[in-house]
Amino acid sequence: MNKATVLKSVTAVVGAGVAIWLIINELISVMENLAAISVPGFPRLSKLLERLKNTVSKSKGDNADEK
């Protein structure tokens, strides 16, 4: 293996990781918006998003106390 082959492989893996992260991030955003307008049919999703929001809120509150 030469450096060019390794660099292409690393670039492909990093690019795929970034693309997957962006897709997941957008899907979460769409699901949050559906939950915000009370679209029925997402009870598990609603619970998951509520837990996520609570976790984020708690972590933001903890950081504010430390400052």
Rank of each mutant, 00 (worst) to 15 (best):
M1Y: 00
T5M: 08
V6F: 07
L7E: 14
K8F: 04
S9Q: 09
S9C: 04
S9T: 09
S9H: 05
T11E: 11
A12K: 04
V13I: 13
G15R: 00
G15I: 00
G15S: 03
G15N: 02
G17E: 01
V18T: 07
A19V: 00
I20M: 04
I20T: 07
I20P: 00
W21P: 00
L22N: 04
I23G: 02
I23P: 01
I24C: 07
N25R: 12
S29T: 10
E32I: 03
A36G: 03
A36W: 03
A36L: 06
A36T: 06
A36F: 04
I37F: 07
S38D: 15
S38E: 15
V39L: 10
P40Q: 02
P40K: 01
G41Q: 02
P43A: 04
P43M: 03
R44L: 15
L45S: 14
L45K: 05
L45M: 15
S46L: 06
K47S: 13
K47Q: 14
L48S: 08
E50P: 04
E50V: 08
R51G: 09
N54A: 15
T55P: 03
T55S: 13
V56E: 13
S57L: 12
S57K: 14
S59G: 02
S59P: 00
S59L: 10
G61W: 02
D62G: 08
D62R: 15
D62M: 15
A64Y: 12
E66R: 12
E66G: 05
E66Q: 12
K67P: 11
